[in-house]
Design a protein around this nucleic acid. Structure first.
Lengths: 155, 155
DNA sequence: CGGTATCCTTCATGATACTG
DNA sequence: CAGTATCATGAAGGATACCG
């Protein structure tokens, strides 16, 4: 019988399934990129993060960083200097999410490859395959390695 | 040097990282639940999915299902009967996402457990731990097993 | 440098009604 | 039963300006 369905609360988030909680913590448009880059570089300043993600607005970046900090996945170190200096780094919990991101990335690659090819029950494909799997040689990291910051002006 | 940053397109989605693609395909408020339940039950009718997720509106359910179908992760079988009958099931690609969902769920549990305990660099905790890890005996499936449909009326 | 504060736009979500 | 169509809304996202 379907009776429980416990609505849970953690870190100010509502969810029914831990999976949803995970998506709320590491999901969204910017958080995965922030987390992955911090995982790569270890420590980054606010301005460095901005340079990595030219598309994000200052407000959004601050907001995402504060949420990640509040959720305990990243650490914010403020140096009380005259030109302010703030450094961000992953916590233990933050580092533990990297394998999850890797897995998601891996599946994304498989999706790209399988899209338009075979593997579906009915053999149908939505749209067209923009490219074969030739441009995705890696299989265990979000895209290539550390050039996953976007540099185009288009949204 | 950070120059490439290729903006990719797949299945009508824009993304810079396969990770983002994955989130667009399986992320969101409802898709993980739909996918997981179909993974559990194999095949479900439209009305059964509605019963599983009382909070979702008909429009949203249809929309999410169409997107998942269009992305090739689920199959839609229409039986041309007088009382319409439509059955949904996962494709190969859809089934391959289940381990990813499991991983995300596993991390969610770890997050719950670690929240307010230790493991962070600065030892701080946001909010309060609502419950210990005692009510989460499983470690490889989204929450318990098949009662992850929400049954409360509150949004 | 690293933010806040304010305002504005967009789009995802939702309620409701109607249909093959 | 399984939708589609229409309208409403509210939160997310973003542009801009100002501040310690």
């Amino acid at each position: 019988m379907v009776t429980a369905c416990t609505l849970k609360h953690c870190a100010g988030k509502e969810y029914y399934c831990s999976l949803e909680l995970t998506l709320q913590v590491i999901g969204g448009k910017w958080k995965p990129i922030i987390l992955w880059r911090l995982g790569q570089d270890g420590t980054l300043r606010f301005s460095e993060l901005r340079r990595i993600m030219p598309n994000i607005t200052q407000k959004m970046l601050t907001q995402q960083l504060r949420e990640l900090e509040s959720d305990g996945v990243l650490h914010r170190e403020v140096y009380p200097q005259v030109p302010p200096r703030v450094e961000y780094s992953l916590t233990e919990m933050g580092r533990s999410v990297l394998p999850v991101l890797s897995e998601m990335c891996k599946w994304g690659h498989a999706f790209e490859a399988n899209h338009g090819t075979a593997g579906t029950t009915d053999g149908r494909a939505a749209g067209h395959a923009t490219a074969p799997a030739a441009d995705a040689p890696d299989t265990d990291a979000p895209d290539t390695d550390n050039d996953l910051g976007m540099a185009v002006g288009e949204v």
